[in-house]
Design a protein around this nucleic acid. Sequence first.
DNA 1: GCACCTCTTGACACCGGTGTCACCTTCGAT
DNA 2: ATCGAAGGTGACACCGGTGTCAAGAGGTGC
Lengths: 339, 339
Amino acid sequence: MSKRPTINDVARLSGVSKKTVSRVINDSPNVTQDTRMKVQAIIEQLDYAPDPQARGLAFRRSFLIGLVYDNPNALYISDIQAGILRACRGTGYELIMHPASFSDQRLVEDVQQFIQRARLDGIILLSPISQLGKLARNLKRQHCPYVRISPKKIDSWRNVVVSNDRSGASLMTDYLIGLGHREISFVLGPASNLSSQEKFAGFCEAMQQHRIPVRKRLLVQGANTFASGELAGSQVLGRAVPPTAIFASNDMMALGVLKTAQMMGVDVPRALSVAGYDDSAHASLVWPDLTTVNQSVEYMGDLAAQKLMSQLATREGAVPAATSRVQPQLVIRHSTVAI
Amino acid sequence: MSKRPTINDVARLSGVSKKTVSRVINDSPNVTQDTRMKVQAIIEQLDYAPDPQARGLAFRRSFLIGLVYDNPNALYISDIQAGILRACRGTGYELIMHPASFSDQRLVEDVQQFIQRARLDGIILLSPISQLGKLARNLKRQHCPYVRISPKKIDSWRNVVVSNDRSGASLMTDYLIGLGHREISFVLGPASNLSSQEKFAGFCEAMQQHRIPVRKRLLVQGANTFASGELAGSQVLGRAVPPTAIFASNDMMALGVLKTAQMMGVDVPRALSVAGYDDSAHASLVWPDLTTVNQSVEYMGDLAAQKLMSQLATREGAVPAATSRVQPQLVIRHSTVAI
DNA sequence: GCACCTCTTGACACCGGTGTCACCTTCGAT
DNA sequence: ATCGAAGGTGACACCGGTGTCAAGAGGTGC
């Protein structure tokens, strides 16, 4: 690669000191409009861009943010990532990915190392990693700025981006009831998960609002996996009085239910409506395509990155932003019909 | 964050100059075993790690590699990314993602900017971006090291990682023929795509080997999308004599075919076998789950990163490695049966 | 004992930016 | 006319590493 222009080249050509060029680059005040324009002209002419490494070194900032995730679902991560990248565009920040293992004993240490080695300015924690209180406490102690997406508890009401899962589940339940369903089976996600709890709460709220009892025999415990959805399906559909609708707390499980139903010869949606939650890319690739809830994961990533960057900007007297709650939306497809 | 140890701290504590510490860090020769061990002990004790920014600045390298991709399929990208990250672990290299638009007129310029701004050491181009000769030529001209994954043409037979698509398609075709299928419909990918051409070639090879004619009426043009698969399905299944098997050149189209078949009431797999290509995560989430070809995308990412890094290591008299051809494998599930 | 060579080490400049502070203008107030 | 304050600018040190080169230590051949 031919060698790039440096700040010295710009300084020489525009007849000012490199410090003044630096001022122009950083939009510092106290530069004459005249000087500023002259320098900017040279910058454009040379197609000069400051070296992020040198900048980082001098600023004592790296302009790097890390994303720590376990891999429950590639699509989820890829959406989050797309959102973060969108937010980073043009800000000078870059994203560095760090896959980690939720169950690894050395996770805290591992993340610590990651931050130190790469000299990250801040990090974003994705669910389920974001649910580890130990990790969050460690980061706080190190004064490392971080934002959590869908954590387990919203203890501090700060530095957190969540989807309003309660509202989403309630929306879906309302819709199913509106279609005439009364015997609605609900497949729960893992209890350790705030999302799962909230979704269940939303389901119950909507049922109660319509004065429909939430029957224990229609509740099944799942684990947010495809296989657990299959299992849940076979449990519920084997009953003497099967439900007319099954609402699973995520798409993976809904797809598992759908598979079981199809294997058992149950006609979806005519004999059974199936609904999911996430609007993952899978949902529209099956037949019948899945009615689900879209939680605009990409937007959550975007939001998280913005939150983090605004914290980094006001580094010192940093006032962590309040929790952002993203509003989910119903996506109606063909796996649910009126009875 | 409490301030990290610098090379000066290590130097002071171990009673040597920082240059000697630097030698130890970089495994330079000409350091006494004694000194080396003394310094290493201090490094461990302080948990010191050199600042990548400062290192990069002095080395005139950034230890960053870029991944440029368009977004045809989130799962594909996420697998590639996982492979690259795996290869990067422990090497000091970090990955920076750069989503781009294949059809954007300013793509070459955009990538150029990306490289300059981030001072990347090298980049990996993902299909379909890797298929742009213009971009590759530009990079070569700039002497920017790059590796292409699944490019359009393997012109130089260098710096390329591809899957042996011909062999994969041939494997699948053999298998279908072995099940007794003779009327096999093939859904082609976009013709501009080397992969698509190779898959078709593999299909033809296997058919010819078994002396089964490749009939024009059983070939359908697709676009690698779900929708084009649906369309292909309806075209082929509407015929007077429908095929007993449909082999689509990717999973997305196979899923589209599957959907159409199910909507038309065709019993898959009893009345129709459906096969895909990619072994994407979607493939095992539908019922019947898809027989497909696994091309170990993650491994390809790993390989590409290794290729790139070895090029970067021997920066000067760089001998680009020969093309790597990854061998795909048949994944048999329930969407195909013998007749 | 001396010249010569190799191995080990450190002083110093440098990579490409920014922070600090002192200097010089310019301008309004007295 | 004089003074002070504010605005604009540059010299210089510094961020945390590495390259260069020269100096000192230790060994060898004569």
